Amino acid sequence: MPDSAAAPVILGTTGPFPHGVLAERHPAIIRRVRDAFPYGPAQHRALDTLLHDCTEGTIGPLPGADRWRGWGLDRHLGQSWFDVPWLWSESYFYRRLLDAVGYFAPGPWQGIDPFRPFKLAELDGKETDEELAALDALGDDPDRALLHGSLWGNRADLGFRLSAESGEAVSALVADDSAGLWPLLRGGTLCLVADNAGRELVPDLLLIAHLLDSGRVADAVLHLKPYPSYVSDATTADLLDALRRLTAAPGAAARYGRTLWSALSDGRLAVRAHPFSCAPLPYAEAPGDLRAEWAAADLTLFKGDLNYRRLVGDRLWPPTTPFAEVTDWFPGPVAALRTLKSDVVTGLSPDTVAALDAAEGQRWRTAGTHALIQVNPSPSASA
């Protein structure tokens, strides 16, 4: 790993973007969740308390969440939400939100995903119909089309319909190591660490189905969240909703859906929901059983912005810091598909950074308009 002293951990006070998430986005999410279900007075009181605490209060206990004590809760008790690592306070917010709506407590609201209405509205929308219909005309390069569909997730204008000649796709990619990704898929195992549900999970599943059908991988392991951490993170229930959507669609989408259904049934596609997937910590602190699974794979592919932050460390790295250096700890070949939605970024050329800063200031890091494909085929830890 490079010298982390030169790259401070991002806090809630580190610039306008993380501060805005804590001060503005989280209260807005509380209000949306409150209106999405006919919660009773107890949930309303708990949500009101959370609304106060997340902007004006301090970090408090999490009853019944003993695992969080090992994840830094005792160390942060009594601190302002803005003065602890941003990754930690974000994760703590969503854990508190689930507590507030009764997700973990015995009772009628136990296990009810507070984000489910938003996920289903997106999954069942007409934009998804259009994206699935585009699968019938992928052309001669399905590898690239499906990889880019997974990369761009819910940006319909930059999904499966990207052609090899798309100038917009080329200019929007700030780093592209895709040429080094395909040789790592040698008919063995792929681990894919999913990001969001809905229209982002669907293209991830399509990519897996294509890799299984084409023989590029013999089996795959899909890592999901054990509970709905963050506002749209994919859980096993979201996987089932996505499979329903695919198998009910016409054309190629249904064929991919049947491939996935069959692969789940015969074990070629396995699902994991490891507790550490919801930890407020970087993946470098992952437990041994999770590291062992990554080490056994031909490639582990991390999807999305949050997973990228956890993979490289949620720090203000100089953007020219090599991706290979910040992932040198990883136990096997690793890749990231990520649309940029936060300040952390690595692996860019000096010319790319200079051009982006000159054209957009810092906005290119957080607006979701740029993306990267980065690969480290041989981290030192895997030797």
Rank of each mutant, 00 (worst) to 15 (best):
F118D: 13
I29P: 04
T235D: 10
P61R: 14
W86V: 05
A145F: 01
I30D: 04
G70T: 03
L158H: 11
F323G: 02
A355S: 14
I30P: 10
L311G: 11
L123S: 05
S171Q: 14
T14K: 01
S166V: 07
S171K: 13
P142I: 02
A383V: 14
A28R: 15
K119M: 05
D124H: 14
L246Y: 07
L246G: 08
R67S: 11
L224H: 08
G20K: 02
P63M: 06
F330M: 13
E122V: 13
E127G: 10
K341Y: 11
A220N: 07
D241Y: 06
L50D: 11
W88E: 03
S89K: 02
G12E: 04
Y308S: 04
L240A: 15
G78S: 02
S89T: 14
A209M: 11
G304M: 03
V231I: 13
A242F: 06
A100F: 03
A381R: 12
L123N: 06
D53G: 04
P331W: 01
R365E: 01
R365H: 01
T128W: 00
H76Q: 11
K126F: 12
I373F: 06
T366G: 00
E168P: 01
A254R: 15
L207N: 07
F37I: 03
E130K: 13
E24S: 13
R291M: 14
L97P: 12
V21A: 07
Y94S: 08
L301F: 09
P379E: 02
G40F: 05
D74M: 00
D314R: 01
A249N: 06
L212R: 06
L135I: 01
W182S: 10
L337I: 09
D266Y: 13
D357G: 07
G187L: 04
W68P: 00
F302L: 15
Y256P: 01
R186N: 09
T300M: 05
V21F: 00
A324Y: 04
T320Q: 13
H44Q: 13
Y94K: 08
F17V: 14
T13L: 13
D113P: 07
A6M: 10
A335P: 09
Y39W: 15
W364Q: 03
R309G: 07
R363Q: 10
A295H: 14
D177I: 08
G332L: 03
V345P: 05
L201S: 07
L224E: 11
W317P: 04
Q43N: 04
G304A: 06
E127Q: 14
E56G: 05
L77N: 02
W182V: 10
H148E: 12
P282F: 03
G60I: 06
G72V: 02
T352N: 01
L98C: 05
S91V: 05
T235M: 12
H370T: 13
W71A: 10
A253G: 08
D35Q: 14
R338V: 14
E360W: 10
D351I: 08
L192R: 04
G368C: 07
A292I: 08
D204T: 14
D48K: 02
I59C: 12
C278D: 10
D213K: 14
G20L: 09
F82Q: 09
L184D: 09
P282T: 07
E325A: 15
L50A: 09
F160P: 01
G188A: 11
A133R: 15
P275A: 03
Y256F: 15
E165I: 01
N307P: 09
T352C: 13
